Structure formats: C-alpha cells, structure tokens
Simulated assay, not measured.
Amino acid sequence: MADLKPNSFKAALRRMEVQHGIWCALRDPLAAEMLATCGYDWMLFDCEHAPNDVASVLSLLQAVAPHPVSPLVRPSHLNAAEIKRLLDIGAQTLLIPYVQTAEEAAEAVAAVTYPPAGIRGVAGLTRATGYGQVAGYHATARDEICLLVQVETEAALARIDAIAAVPGIDGIFVGPADLAASMGLPGQPGAPEVKSAVLSAIKRIRGAGQPPGVLTLDPVFARECIDAGAVFVSCDLDMAAMRKGLTRT
C-alpha cells in the first residue's frame, strides 16, 4: 500500500509562505516538463481560457510529477462533474473561477469533498487513489486537497468577507483582468483604479485569515501585491514568455 501524497503547496499557504508560480496555457507535456525544472513553486494548468480538457491535463500532471513543483488546475467553471474528474486524475489543488458568492464557494467545497459532508463521486481505481493502493484515500483525501476560489468582479470583491468565512476554502485569488472589465475598463488591468482595487482586496483577504493570490505581468505591481499580503503570485504566462523571448526586434 502507498501513502497519500502530501500537498506541499497547501502546507505553504497555511504558513502564509510566499509561493511563486507560472500560468500555463500550452497543452504540450514536453513544455510542461521543461517548465517544471525552472524553479517555480507552482504551475497552473488552465482549462478556462486555454484549450485544455481533462485528458490533456492528465498528460500535464504526469509530465511534472517527478519534479519539485506543485501543479494547480483551473477548471472551466464551477462544475461538480468536471471538478470530480480533475480530482480523480490526481489534481490536488484547484482554482475555481468566477466565484461570486459565499453560496457558490460552499458549492465548490462540496464538490471537492466526499459524502456525507460533500458531493464528490466515489471511485476506487483512479490515479488519485494510486489505482487503489493509497490506504484510506477516501477518508483522508480532503486533508491534502487545496481549494482556491477566484473573485474577479466588483460584486465578488464586496463579498470577500463572506466568501473567506466559508469552511473549506484554502485561499482566494484576485483576477485583475476580469475585475478591470467589471469596472468598465476591459483590457486595462494595469489601470490605477484596478490596481487599487486589487491591493485593497488582497489586504481584506489577508485580514480575513485567508492567503490571497494574484496574477500580473507587471513585476513592480507583483511586489506591491506581496507587500500587501499576497501569498501565491504569478508574474508570467508560458505563452507570454514564449512570445517575448522569440519576437524579433
């Protein structure tokens, strides 16, 4: 029999230890494997705005498994069936996009939790269970699952305290791009009023006892976010880094 794999990312968030990551849209396992050697604490495989699905995420998880990096997965939306499948293929940390209310946060918690406390479907011979070899998986799996929710509208930011208070939430991510759009500034995540709203949200999340997260391509602003209390931070995307590195001047 095998032991349940510990989630080092979740443990670091509990310690409020800053974790640096990279956002991944490429679905190539070779690219993911290479990025896993680049020194990041975490990598996020995106199913919301990238052409990933459960099958492609499985290949990405397998590619990075030997390396000391924590894989995060963002499902396409708050969908219990998709969340169940991502957990079964071994994802231990999920970022749920567009969570607007405490009720939706509670739905996300239920989706990653087995009955009777939640609604996650039970299966035995999955990658998550070590194909049936992880002793007591169904009783202990939730201990190592890290559930992050994403607030990305003005309405969601107004409900941060209620969302943060939902039992089972392990962190709250602020999405500057969608927040900018909700503020009437689509395509302007670097606008001063958007940055101000992001920093305010980070402070409120931290004040509520939750680790805040953020994605920004502005390294100066990233430092401001960390100073404000952000714990899991990404300053780059694989596609952006590739374009920047390969563009001829």
Results as ranks from 00 to 15, higher is better:
22 I>P: 05
4 L>W: 08
210 Q>D: 11
40 Y>A: 01
10 K>L: 11
13 L>C: 11
68 P>D: 10
173 F>D: 05
175 G>L: 03
243 R>C: 12
174 V>I: 10
9 F>A: 00
89 I>E: 02
96 I>L: 05
21 G>M: 09
245 G>Y: 05
177 A>T: 13
56 S>G: 07
118 G>E: 05
98 Y>D: 14
249 T>F: 15
23 W>L: 03
136 G>L: 10
194 V>L: 05
85 R>A: 14
212 P>E: 04
221 F>D: 01
53 D>W: 05
229 G>C: 00
141 A>N: 04
180 A>D: 05
238 D>E: 02
115 P>W: 07
13 L>E: 09
203 K>R: 12
94 L>V: 00
74 R>E: 04
186 P>L: 12
19 Q>D: 12
125 L>A: 10
26 L>Y: 13
60 L>V: 07
28 D>P: 10
96 I>N: 00
106 A>T: 02
172 I>T: 04
16 M>G: 10
230 A>Y: 05
100 Q>E: 12
131 Y>F: 15
149 V>W: 08
179 L>S: 07
183 M>Y: 08
164 A>W: 10
89 I>K: 00
67 H>F: 15
44 L>D: 07
131 Y>I: 10
93 T>C: 08
137 Y>T: 10
231 V>Y: 04
134 V>T: 08
247 T>E: 14
83 I>A: 03
128 A>F: 06
45 F>W: 11
192 P>L: 07
224 E>C: 06
193 E>G: 09
20 H>Y: 15
189 P>Q: 02
69 V>D: 00
101 T>F: 06
165 A>C: 05
181 A>C: 09
99 V>N: 02
143 D>P: 03
226 I>N: 00
137 Y>D: 02
217 L>T: 08
83 I>L: 00
228 A>Y: 11
93 T>E: 02
130 G>R: 05
86 L>W: 01
226 I>W: 11
92 Q>L: 12
249 T>D: 13
34 M>G: 13
52 N>F: 12
37 T>A: 13
108 A>S: 03
139 A>Y: 13
28 D>F: 10
116 P>L: 08
119 I>C: 06
237 L>K: 13
151 V>R: 04
103 E>H: 14
63 A>N: 11
33 E>K: 05
